[in-house]
Simulated assay, not measured.
Amino acid sequence: MAFLQKHRKMNNNLEELKVKLQIESVNDELFNQALTHPSFVNETPDAQTSYQRLEFLGDSVLSLLASEYIFLTFTTIDEGLLTDIRAALVRTEALAKISRKLGIGHYIHLSKGEMSNEGYENEKILADVLEAIIAVVYLDKGYESAKNFFLMHIASELETIMKNKLYVDPKTTFQEYAQANFKKTPRYDLLAYDEKRKHFTVGLYLGSKLFAKGGGKSKKSAQQEAAKKALADN
C-alpha cells in the first residue's frame, strides 16, 4: 500500500512535469521509466525498469538533433569546429544545467541512499534523465516532436556556448600553452572530495608547481575549471 500511495503521488508529479516540459500527451509508463534511477528499482520490489535503456537511445537521438541544428545554423564552419560545438552542447555539464533550469531533479525517483546524497543534484543523473526524456518523446511521438523538444529546451544553450567560447576545451588549450612555454605536460591531482556535497577539488600542476585549483561535481568538471583559471591567470 505504501508503494501504491507513493506511486500515485509520483503520477501526480509526472503530470505536473509534463506540463512544464510541454509534452503532456507522452506515454505515462515510458515517462515514469525515464525518471526512475537504477537505485530506486533495486530498493523498490514493485518498481519497473530504470531509465538506462532510454538514456542509451536518447543519447543518440540528441546527438543527431544537435548535429542537424548546428550544421544548419553554422553554414561556413568546418567539421572539426562543428564537432567541438556539438560536444559542448551535449556534454554532461550542459545537459545538467538545462535539467536544473527545467526543475527535473525534483521528479526523479531515487533510493533513500541517493536522496540523502542529493542525487537530484548529481550532474550525471540529471543529464541521463534529460536524455531519457528525449528518447520517450522520440519513441512515443516521433522525430519531429523530439526536434521540437530540443528547440524549446536545449538549442538556446548554444548562444551561451558561442558567446563564452565554451566549445574550446580549456584542458587542451592549457596543455598547448604549457608545452609551448614550459615544455611540460600538465598534471591534475585530486586534492579533496566532499562526500556530502559530492564535490571534487583538483590541483593543476606543472612539475611541482601548483598553477590553479578547480572544483566541480565530477573530476572532469573540476579539471576543466582548474584549466580555465590557469588560462585566466597566465
Score class of each variant (00 low, 15 high):
T92G: 04
I77H: 14
G105S: 02
L89N: 13
T73Q: 12
I70S: 04
L72V: 03
G105Y: 01
R91Q: 15
L89I: 13
I104F: 01
R91D: 15
D84I: 03
A96H: 13
D84K: 15
R91T: 14
D84A: 13
K97M: 08
I98A: 09
A88K: 07
L89F: 11
E68P: 00
D84S: 14
F71C: 01
G105I: 01
K97E: 15
E93Y: 14
G80F: 08
R86G: 09
G105R: 00
L95T: 08
L81R: 11
A96I: 07
I104S: 01
Y69L: 01
L89W: 15
T76R: 06
K101W: 04
A94W: 10
H106T: 10
I98P: 03
L95F: 15
I70Q: 04
I70H: 07
L89D: 10
F74A: 00
R100G: 14
L102E: 07
R100E: 13
F74G: 05
T83F: 08
S99I: 03
G103I: 09
L102Y: 04
V90G: 07
Y107A: 04
A96Q: 08
K101F: 10
R86D: 05
T76Y: 07
A96Y: 11
L82T: 11
T92L: 12
G105H: 01
K101Y: 12
R91L: 12
R86A: 07
E79I: 10
I98H: 04
T92V: 11
Y107W: 07
G103E: 02
V90T: 14
I70D: 10
I104L: 01
I85Q: 12
E79N: 06
T75R: 06
G105M: 01
K97H: 13
S99D: 13
A87I: 06
D84C: 06
F74R: 06
V90M: 05
T75P: 00
S99C: 05
A96L: 11
L89C: 14
K101A: 13
I77L: 14
L82Y: 01
I104P: 05
I70N: 05
S99Q: 04
I98S: 08
G105V: 01
K97Y: 11
K101M: 11
R86H: 02
I98T: 10
I85N: 06
D78M: 00
E68H: 09
L95A: 06
L81C: 04
G103S: 07
H106N: 11
D84N: 12
G103D: 06
E68C: 09
T73N: 00
D84W: 03
L95Q: 12
L82H: 09
A88S: 09
K101C: 09
Y107Q: 10
I77Y: 10
Y107V: 13
H106M: 01
R100W: 10
A94P: 05
Y107D: 08
T76L: 03
F74L: 05
T83H: 07
L89K: 12
T73L: 09
G105W: 00
